[in-house]
């Protein structure tokens, strides 16, 4: 039993680490900076200034927190999707599905490093907000905020795992990824309060990851306790779990169908 557990840990962490390294093998420090520091900063500033133009400078905090937490979707959507779909482009799907390793561990492992990287991105985003736009974190329960960021990054990665499976069956996954990312910017409350959206749009907002995470982060920065945002965080965990489950079912279906039809490597 102990041996099997050790093997499971090894498979999970090794595949998580190598899939992340493989994805960024072409990266150099300057390029990493462009993607992880300059681009997120520019995105936060753009929406914060647009928001301030719309509703005044005193609303900067609303936009900074919303867009900083939204940054988890850069890793969650793009990174995780490419970690799953990249196997097809690298021609390694056959090896992955030929190995006896537990599929759930291999599948969820693809998201692990992106959750950590995504959290780092959110923290950097908040830091920019504090330094450049004067966001006040003095009343923030740091532990509660860290937990919120972790849960949000994980639930967003759940969406990424589902989209990653789509990348195994379609060539236009970047179109889907980009559209989902921008829809989340509009629907998850990063820039527009969810309560102000039409009822049918709100229903969509609440089946997406990020929505509850962004709302929790705003409440925590305003001084709310972990207990008071607990129900929202539980909801965020559940939404993420549903996406992971859906993604895993699709992943297994893809494997079964591809093996049956001999279409594993078909582009």
């Amino acid at each position: 039993m102990m041996k099997r557990l050790q093997a499971a840990f090894r498979i999970f962490f090794t595949s998580a680490y190598y899939s992340y390294i493989a994805l960024f093998r072409w990266f150099r420090p300057a390029q990493y900076m462009a993607s992880k520091i300059v681009m997120p900063l520019a995105q936060i500033l753009f929406f914060a200034f647009l928001g301030m133009y719309a509703s005044g400078r005193d609303q900067a905090s609303f936009y900074v927190i919303g867009n900083a937490v939204q940054l988890a979707a850069i890793n969650g959507i793009y990174g995780v999707t490419m970690s799953v779909g990249g196997e097809r482009w690298a021609g390694t799907l056959g090896y992955m599905f030929g190995a006896p390793a537990n599929r759930m561990l291999v599948f969820v492992g693809r998201a692990f490093m992106h959750i950590i990287d995504g959290m780092l991105g959110v923290v950097l985003g908040l830091m920019w907000g504090v330094l450049l736009l004067g966001v006040d974190l003095s009343r923030t329960d740091v532990g509660a905020l860290a937990l919120t960021i972790l849960i949000t990054a994980a639930s967003t990665s759940g969406m990424g795992l589902l989209l990653g499976c789509l990348s195994l069956i379609t060539r236009n996954v970047m179109f889907i990824n980009n559209t989902v990312y921008f829809l989340m910017l509009a629907l998850c409350g990063a820039n527009v309060p969810v309560s102000s959206l039409p009822g049918w749009v709100q229903r969509i907002s609440y089946v997406l990851p990020l929505t509850r995470g962004i709302a929790s982060a705003r409440d925590i920065v305003d001084g709310a306790s972990l207990r008071s945002v607990g129900p929202m965080l539980v909801g965020e965990v559940l939404v993420g779990a549903v996406y992971i489950l859906l993604g895993y079912v699709l992943f297994r279906q893809f494997e079964i169908q591809a093996k049956k039809r001999g279409t594993l490597e078909v582009m």
Binding site: L50, G51, A54, S55, F182, S196
Partner: peptide, 26 residues
């Protein structure tokens, strides 16, 4: 090209919707 369709049509459209919604009180 899906990427071009997104860049030229979908993204500006979503930014427009977002902008119109954010500015509705103006």
């Amino acid at each position: 090209d899906g990427f071009i369709i997104f860049t030229v049509l979908v993204q500006p459209l979503l930014i427009a919707i977002l902008g119109l919604w954010m500015m509705r009180e103006q």
